[in-house]
Design a protein around this nucleic acid. Structure first.
Lengths: 181, 181
DNA sequence: TAAAAATACTCCATAGGTATTTTAT
DNA sequence: ATAAAATACCTATGGAGTATTTTTA
């Protein structure tokens, strides 16, 4: 599997349109079309619900989309790392989705964080628990604080923000390749 | 870049020997040799310090090794996900490296964890802060509790285990593709 | 001399292109 | 008629193999 073909697939999922996806990848439509077929062959499953236009991703396609994004993020990180854009110490913007009930608790977490890494910005967004799940899936947020009991979270690593008080909502970091865990 | 070639490279880094790495990948030595060259060409940098035998990885090679493992872990996760081995709810074994000074504190973290996910085992290892860094890099442990001040940790996501008490050692989860953070 | 890696070469799969067809709107 | 995707076909890159050479221990 070529990493570049994963890119094709992710673009296709975003554009929902072979032609536009191909354009964004700077390849022709047949090339992208063929590459997606190859992906499906290699994984031996359907990724796209095809009519005579793009219709949707299959459930398996959604999974490939998720991990594909993960792999592409790693791949980008590698290039950032190699081009020395890392520089040690945390920088950038951490986007967190927080349910309304957890807003007061959020500052407890962020306070220590900003104290240690002043170059990192934290953006707090008030969001519903469903939006938080979606935001994590779409990489629109990097983490969140939400409920664990209502809808089980997918593809995330969860931990209690304050271990000895279990009645608080739990914090969730974006999903990871976490091996056996 | 073929994901399979990343596998070649990671195997080579582990075996420190082209022939044995090739064997583990079920390819011939020249094939692996050529693939590594191609990787170097594509990234436009040297990965291996070559004499007329394998000598070491270059610093860039170490970085590629790290992110390569990450990508392969994601790729494996994808396959696990597709073959329905996920099953929801955490299971497996979480291996944590803990400095001696943090051992008493570790139970605070693990207590809530095991209460919520009884099917997950937690293995606590008393380790030096250096061993913890190495263990994280080698994927021999999944996370740890260690010092942040002495030697800065590489490739990890850090957070304080108990936000309002900053004098405690910090917990570190294994590194992730964490976008802008 | 033996072992390790690179090199030379061959073969074939396939990535990517252009041109065209099919089908639904 | 138009737009979207698939198909057919072509070319060239390069992945993987075998055989061989080079170099060092």
């Amino acid at each position: 599997m070529l990493i570049r073909h994963l890119k094709f697939f992710v673009m296709l999922a975003e554009e929902q349109h072979f032609g536009r996806a191909a354009e964004r990848c700077n390849v022709t439509q047949p090339t992208l079309s063929h590459a997606i077929r190859k992906l499906e062959d290699e994984l031996n499953l359907g990724l796209i619900v095809r009519g005579h236009r793009f219709l949707a991703l299959t459930p398996e396609g959604e999974k490939v989309l998720h991990w594909g994004r993960q792999i592409l993020a790693d791949y980008d990180s590698l290039h950032d790392d190699l081009t020395g854009r890392d520089s040690g110490g945390l920088t950038g913007r951490l986007r967190l989705g927080i349910i309304l009930a957890a807003m007061p608790a959020a500052s407890i977490l962020t306070e220590a964080f900003v104290a240690r890494d002043p170059r990192a910005e934290i953006e707090l967004r008030s969001m519903s628990s469903r939006s938080i799940q979606k935001g994590l899936d779409n990489f629109e947020i990097d983490g969140g604080m939400t409920y664990l009991d209502n809808e089980p979270l997918q593809h995330v690593r969860c931990f209690p923000p304050y271990p000895s008080i279990t009645s608080l909502p739990a914090a969730a970091a974006t999903s990871l390749p976490d091996g056996p865990a």
